Computed example of a mutant assay.
Amino acid sequence: MTAYAAESPLAVAANELDTTVGAAGQLRAQVLLDRAHFSPGEIDGFAGSNQRRAVRGYQQAKALPVTGDLDAGTWAALNADMAPVLVAYALTVEDVGQNYASLPQDMMEQGKLKSLGFESIEEALGERFHASPALLRKLNPTADFSKAGTQLQVPNVVGVAAPAKATKVVVDKSDSTLTLVDAAGNPFAQYPVSSGSQHDPLPLGEWKIVATAVNPTFHYNPALFWDADPTHARATLAAGPNNPVGTRWIDLSKPHYGLHGTAEPASIGKTQSHGCVRLTNWDVERVAAAIGPDVVVVMQE
């Protein structure tokens, strides 16, 4: 059953079928874009660069005027998805019983840990529901996040069907996006990325997917990082959602390069990387579901 928290105007208004571009409208747009596989990245209810990229990609795929704006035609197409934007979720014993702990920033200290798990329940729930921890708090201002059975309002993004199989992946550095393309050359899904930097440029050209790894460890080699601490040595960092490559590594034919997740979903599309292509953990899982070995990955400026 869907329920809306009476104390949260965002939760109430986000289910209305209108073209408002206030906080509730932005939240609605982001959830619908996520469900349509045109990801706005971390859902936060604020209009930003990732949302605008998602809107542009969605408009192009739907043969709408490509403006990046939430105009009437775009709202009409998005609102064909009539599923509730927010749904009720009850915290479980497992949710509140995890061993949440702050993680050290230093790579060598992280290498001493047996797992790189979530630091808070809000972070864990944000990952599951593709939302910023701040948004979850805003939607549930009086909720006790430490108590099993607490009812929350969360973005309705779980259980969405996986995207179709892609025949090509296009990473566009200038637009900070990764696009899935079908056999006819049509884009049908898009995700924000961080890709390359001045020190570690994106390797332009065509590569192929070699393999994928779920919950990978991270083999830290300071010699490969221009900004590494000179006192650091090689280390293997344990798996976990806060591992530097997140929950999935998609290996490319270019040595040392891949598509992967991140420990910092809010940074995607807004910061640079060390050459690889970073996505939120939930987006890289959707990409992984849509590709296979030998799929071509085009990297372009």
Rank of each mutant, 00 (worst) to 15 (best):
I291L: 06
L113S: 01
Y257D: 08
P293R: 07
H219I: 14
T19R: 11
L125Y: 01
A289G: 10
L139R: 00
Y220P: 01
T2E: 15
Q110R: 10
Q59G: 01
D95E: 05
Q30C: 04
A161Q: 06
S132H: 00
V55F: 09
A76Y: 00
G240D: 00
C276I: 08
T67V: 06
G111S: 07
A143T: 07
A235I: 04
G196S: 02
T179Y: 03
E42R: 03
A54Q: 04
Q300I: 10
Q60K: 04
S267Y: 10
D182A: 09
G205I: 14
V170E: 14
E94V: 11
E7N: 10
W75T: 05
A124V: 06
A189E: 03
R248T: 09
S146L: 12
A77N: 08
D229Y: 07
D283I: 02
V31F: 02
N186V: 15
S115M: 00
S146T: 15
V170I: 15
F118L: 01
A29P: 09
Y100D: 11
D34L: 14
D294C: 04
E285S: 09
L259P: 06
D144S: 02
L70S: 02
P104V: 10
T67W: 09
P133Q: 12
K112I: 14
T74I: 06
R234C: 15
V193L: 08
R248N: 12
K173Y: 14
L202Q: 04
F118W: 01
R52E: 14
G159Q: 13
D69F: 07
P155T: 14
K254G: 10
N140D: 09
T67H: 08
A166L: 04
P203E: 15
N50Y: 03
V181K: 07
S176C: 13
P104L: 12
A80W: 05
A6H: 09
P104K: 12
V245H: 00
H130D: 10
F225T: 00
T150Q: 13
N140M: 06
T280Y: 02
E301W: 04
T19P: 06
L259K: 06
T271H: 10
E206G: 11
L259W: 01
E123R: 01
S273V: 07
L64Q: 00
S102N: 13
G269M: 07
G185R: 03
G205R: 09
R28K: 06
G240W: 02
P203L: 13
Q300R: 02
V297A: 06
A13P: 05
A211T: 11
F38P: 03
E264F: 13
T74Q: 01
A76S: 09
V297R: 05
I121Q: 04
K168E: 13
S49C: 11
D44F: 03
Q198K: 08
E109I: 13
A266Y: 01
G111R: 01
S253E: 01
G292R: 09
S197Y: 04
A162C: 09
G258M: 11
Q151W: 12
F46D: 15
E16T: 12
L33H: 00
L136C: 08
S176P: 03
K254D: 06
P155D: 13
A29G: 12
S273W: 02
I121C: 03
P155Y: 12
D34P: 08
L86Y: 01
G45M: 12
L259D: 11
V154E: 05
